[in-house]
């Protein structure tokens, strides 16, 4: 029944060829750059630290990934800036807590 509904709203399981294509793309990013997902995550952490020295950013939405275009690999970073900070109360600090 679920699959029938899924089909009705246009969702279906990917074919095995589609799975193969997506898995290959992912594994080749690692093969070509010699950068494991674990290293990439650590690098992302460090890059965020550097950016935070200069900009307020929405860390939860940062996406840093390797992308293939033709036979070249690009490091692509999407780093959204924190723009609604004017409307947000300033983050509470220990000092605030200590105030009477």
């Amino acid at each position: 029944m679920a699959s029938f509904l899924e089909r009705l709203i246009g969702r279906r399981d990917p074919s095995s060829a589609e799975l193969a294509r997506e898995r290959l793309k992912l594994v080749l990013v690692t093969d070509r750059s010699d950068l494991s997902p674990d290293k990439l995550e650590r690098m992302q952490g460090e890059i965020i630290q550097v950016i935070r020295k200069y900009l307020e950013i929405d860390e939860t939405e940062v996406a840093i990934k390797l992308e293939q275009r033709d036979r070249k690999t690009y490091l692509v970073a999407d780093v959204p800036l924190e723009q609604d900070r004017i409307y947000k109360p300033p983050p509470k600090t220990d000092e605030d807590e200590a105030k009477p």
Binding site: S15, S16, A17, E18, A20, R21, L24, R71
Partner: peptide
């Protein structure tokens, strides 16, 4: 098999290898 979606197509392979 390609038609059934159970084998990478020529286009799939070309997209991945780009040569």
């Amino acid at each position: 098999m390609v038609r059934r979606g159970d084998m990478l197509s020529v286009n799939d392979v070309m997209e991945i290898l780009s040569i």
